[in-house]
Design a protein around this nucleic acid. Structure first.
Lengths: 220, 220
DNA sequence: GTGGATCCATGTATGGATCCAA
DNA sequence: TTGGATCCATACATGGATCCAC
């Protein structure tokens, strides 16, 4: 693990040094072993990139680069350079989310400043050959934030009305809520219609792929 | 792991079957491997006995035998048959402890009905040769509970006044508070003088050896 | 395409206690 | 003797995401 970058400039330098390299080459440099596939190592690329850039791995709940206020996200791309997957943002924490407004929400904090690291993710391409792309340092513009805020408020209102279990991934234009758990039987403490405790499936906030595609389109 | 005992009678039968056996013999029967010493396996005897009696290992926060409302504790004895160590009860949780009274406290719940399993624990005796003693099913009598309550209330009042960091193991006649952490640098969330969050060393409630000795004296 | 389901790593928290220096 | 320090196992929470049936 490298030390934390001292500045935005240093962070971008490191990220640019990764651009164009294959995961196999990076793994070899860092001494990490390459898994056979992502099936059993879904977060592997993210951990590898965190390691290379000196992010504070697994430290909660701040951004990956606390001194810079920047969050790191890897983004898997298809053969057209479009995102293949939605992007996980953070967990849904019904009690805490109801206590705050959009301005101070964890979703907004996480998304206020993001370093996107794109990675080739074609299903038939061996992991070792997949290449890192050009890094994108992004902040939401006014129109993007407006819609994110609207989505978040719609979802939070449903939670407030005790309708968490009615929320499906179909709500939200850019931001959606989907399961985020070990499996469908996992339960976490929640809040019922009138604030009473309840157990529900753990969920997370995700960015739809069509939204991250828009980000890429503005940073070609 | 055996199934849970269905009744107090069945639990006592199982405990009596362990009495007189050595840890080596029991480990062999259960297929568990005996550690070289307790230095690196401090809770080993407790886990072994839980296994043999069918306790719900590690399930929180109820008693070891939920259906019976009975807590299991092993008690290491010296060459005179006296307790060698204090007995851990439960962790100190400042916020929760302040919300409750003695009647509903976790300390009282844990101690309301205990099955004590004594074990020889002479320092020079090899682990494999140490023998389990006669089980003791115990409930605190009125005078014991009076003092436990008094100790708990004294300690809880100190926590309420924000004096958790001033509490040493010297307070309390039967019940004391001592560190319970990975090491002295470990920190956990606490509550400051006016309810503000604070970080302190994790601590636990313990029964002094002189108290458990009293229990043994009444059940010779 | 994508909504619902799932997988790994890691850090804490809790439950089982005993160690050891003064 | 014992107050303060420490050790192991296991479960849960969170952060990293991708899988895959429909």
């Amino acid at each position: 693990m490298k030390s934390s970058p001292a500045s935005k400039t240093e962070l971008l330098e490191r990220a640019n040094q990764l651009a164009g390299k294959t995961l196999g080459a990076i793994a070899a440099e860092t001494g990490l072993s390459l898994p056979d596939s992502m099936k059993r190592a879904k977060g592997w690329t993210g951990l590898l990139v965190e390691h290379c850039l000196g992010a504070c791995a697994g430290s909660l709940p701040g951004p990956d680069f606390p001194a810079l206020g920047i969050e790191l996200k890897t983004l898997p791309l298809d053969h057209q350079g479009k995102p293949r997957e939605s992007t996980y943002v953070c967990t849904v924490s019904p009690r805490n989310d109801l206590k705050t407004a959009w301005r101070t929400s964890r979703v907004r904090q996480k998304l206020s400043h993001v370093l996107w690291i794109t990675v080739e993710a074609l299903p038939d391409m061996p992991l070792a050959e997949r290449r890192i792309g050009t890094p994108i340092l992004w902040r939401p513009d006014a129109s993007q934030e407006k819609i994110l805020k609207s989505d978040w408020e719609e979802l939070t209102d449903m939670i407030r009305r005790g309708e968490l279990d009615k929320i499906t991934a179909r709500y939200g234009q850019y931001l959606q809520i989907r399961p985020k758990a070990r499996n469908a039987r996992a339960l976490q403490s929640s809040a019922g219609p009138e604030g009473y405790p309840d157990m529900t499936l753990p969920r997370g906030y995700y960015l739809r792929a069509k939204f991250t595609r828009q980000i890429l389109d503005y940073h070609p």
